[in-house]
């Protein structure tokens, strides 16, 4: 069933929801955008061609999260269980929502369940906004998703001139929108056209068929030092990536808290051992880890690529390194290796 949300009623609707839910939506901060709680004075940033710069994974896996507080004198600790209030994330892009489904396979499995993650997932309704004009830095279709992909979403919106047309995709989504006016035939036709144009406008950024085998094959080669020569080894590509989930747990003893922080394989200390030995001594090995994790190890685990093509690492790398170009070189490099050999 498709519904419409008239754009000029948007703020009012979000305010109404705010009475029952915490509503989070993309908003401008300086020149970038980030998901923040909606208030009357919020300036929404829904008109960017792509996702927010700071990824909404932080709404489920906060960059720094206090897990417990302890009291050394009384020899006791308080576990912090955050059971968030019911929440609507409004305007999340399909790449970021599908990334959450990938991360579910890490934080919410039969064997292990992270209560912080699972609690937040449970209490959140995800209202997606499809990408009508994906910029050239996005490549979701290459990795098996798309600008109107449904994975992880409870509803998806397609933007027309004055309305958002909403497709409910789950029971939660259906319930949220059931009293909204129904979309007309004309709306539905426009939606079909926009969705198919958006998808067709995106190019195949690199060949995924056989990519894993290629990378596995290149494990010991010079490929990594070649592609990573200008890499700074910073945290930009991994911190902004919606599928990167590594963390480090630190006791902030001065305030008696145990905190979980994002961490990244691109940092030297990530793999630094107490002995002083570092099994990933240079940026080449760290780059290998980043790429192999996404394009090989994820496939070993769940037969899916661990990248949803969101384009952030491409857009914000301070030295302009483009993961797509790196991967294209992989196949060339392999054929060179094979030809020479």
């Amino acid at each position: 069933m498709m519904y419409i949300l008239v754009k000029k009623n948007l703020d009012q609707k979000l305010s109404e929801w705010s009475a029952k839910y915490e509503v989070v939506a993309p908003q401008k901060v300086e020149a970038y955008s980030q998901f923040l709680p909606f208030t009357e004075s919020s300036e929404l940033a829904l008109n960017e061609p792509h996702n927010t710069r700071y990824p909404p994974k932080s709404l489920f896996l906060p960059q720094s999260e206090v897990m417990l507080k302890y009291n050394k004198r009384l020899n006791k600790f308080d576990e912090i269980r955050i059971l968030p209030e019911k929440r609507i994330i409004f305007g999340i892009r399909p790449c970021d929502a599908s990334a959450l489904t990938l991360l579910d396979t890490v934080f919410d499995t039969e064997e292990y369940q992270d209560p912080y993650w699972a609690g937040r997932r449970e209490n959140t309704i995800l209202v997606g906004l499809g990408c009508s004009e994906p910029p050239s830095t996005c490549f979701c279709t290459t990795v098996g998703y798309g600008p109107f992909n449904h994975d992880g979403l409870d509803a998806i919106m397609t933007e027309l001139d004055d309305v958002f047309v909403i497709e409910a995709l789950s029971a939660k989504g259906e319930k949220l929108f059931s009293d909204f006016p129904a979309a007309t035939n004309e709306h539905e036709l426009s939606v079909l056209r926009i969705q198919s144009n958006a998808k067709q406008g995106m190019n195949q950024a690199f060949e995924t068929e056989g990519l894993k085998q290629t990378l596995d094959h290149l494990f010991e080669s010079d490929y990594w030092s070649e592609i990573a020569e200008s890499c700074l080894g910073c945290g930009v590509c991994t911190y902004l990536c919606p599928t990167c989930f590594c963390f480090d747990i630190v006791d902030e003893v001065q305030r008696n808290e145990r905190v979980r922080n994002w961490d990244t394989c691109m940092f030297r200390i990530y793999s630094q051992e107490a002995s002083g030995h570092n099994p990933r001594p240079t940026i080449s090995e760290r780059t290998r880890q980043r790429l192999m994790h996404k394009y090989s190890y994820w496939l070993d685990h769940i037969e899916k690529i661990g990248c949803t093509g969101c384009g952030r690492c491409v857009r914000y790398c301070p030295v302009g390194l483009d993961i797509r170009a790196m991967l294209r070189t992989a196949s060339n490099f392999e054929s060179e290796v094979v030809n020479v050999g």
Partner: peptide, 12 residues
């Protein structure tokens, strides 16, 4: 306080 401690500033 907007810093995400990615250390790109340092590495650059």
């Amino acid at each position: 306080e907007r810093c995400i401690r990615c250390y790109a500033c340092r590495e650059a």
